[in-house]
């Protein structure tokens, strides 16, 4: 399975366009938000939001790539090896989570050296780990989309969920700038709760119990969705 993870990472790393795209938008977002020279709190908000935005983009795109692989017959080719289909799904999740590191680290570095986000080393590490590990449930959303839909549809579904979750989750702008009727909904999204972990950590406050509960529920739901989609679509591989 490690060999498979290595191969998929190799394929993605060689896709320079994909890597650039996965970085350009989050970097642009952070630079735009930080450019006005806001206070530390807003800076941290912007940095976490942009990193989460980048990581989300990577895991969703990785998922929709599964639909393209199926169209090429690659999933079927994998079924002609001793790898089990479940191993393939897990490996894809691992690939997504590994590549999610890239925007997190890049945005973190830019945050540190552009306008100077000021955090203790322990907090930096904490935020890094939370952003990295916390992306796993959203990686499952991407995988589910990739298995459920055909290539073109998967791309549309991926883009729509990417943008919706980014806006609703408050990654671009704080959720209190959303229309009032959307604000309660926003608090229930996995992306808001995912980013909230790091926002809280940066503010040195304990993680919100409700937040963890919502996130746990989403993790279960999205895992079930990925499993369902895999059973529907993986069989057609």
């Amino acid at each position: 399975m490690l060999g498979y993870i290595r191969l998929e990472i190799l394929r993605l790393v060689r896709n320079g366009g994909y890597l650039m795209m996965s970085l350009i938008m989050p970097v642009g977002l952070y630079v735009t938000l930080a450019g006005g020279g806001p206070d530390q709190e807003s800076l941290v908000r912007a940095m976490v939001g942009a990193a989460a935005f980048g990581a989300l983009g990577v895991v969703i795109t990785n998922g929709t790539g599964i639909a393209e692989d199926r169209a090429l017959g690659w999933l079927r080719q994998l079924r002609l090896t001793p790898l089990s289909p479940v191993q393939v799904v897990i490996a894809r999740g691992a690939v997504a989570t590994c590549l999610g590191i890239l925007p997190i680290v890049v945005i973190g570095l830019i945050g540190k050296f552009y306008r100077g986000v000021d955090l203790s080393p322990g907090t930096w590490l904490e935020i890094f780990l939370l952003l990295w590990v916390g992306i796993a449930p959203l990686a499952m959303l991407g995988i589910g989309i990739g298995y459920l839909f055909k290539a073109q549809l998967a791309q549309i579904a991926g883009t729509v969920s990417y943008l919706t979750l980014t806006l609703l989750g408050g990654l671009m702008m704080p959720t209190d700038t959303l229309p009032s009727w959307l604000q309660p909904l926003s608090k229930e999204t996995p992306v808001y709760r995912y980013a909230q972990l790091s926002w809280d950590a940066a503010a040195n406050s304990a993680p919100s119990g409700t937040g963890l509960g919502v996130l746990a529920l989403w993790t279960a739901l999205l895992a079930a969705f990925a499993a369902f989609a895999y059973r529907r679509g993986g069989r057609r591989a």
């Binding site: 060999g3 498979y4 290595r6 191969l7 394929r11 090429l72 017959g73 002609l80 090896t81 001793p82």
Partner: peptide
């Protein structure tokens, strides 16, 4: 096994692909 249909994936060399499959055995 070798099936009739199926295209080749981009950005992987012959050596890499063959080596990956052989290492799954």
């Amino acid at each position: 096994a070798m099936l009739q249909e199926g295209k080749m994936i981009p950005r992987v060399s012959v050596r890499e692909l063959v080596d990956f499959v052989r290492q799954t055995y």
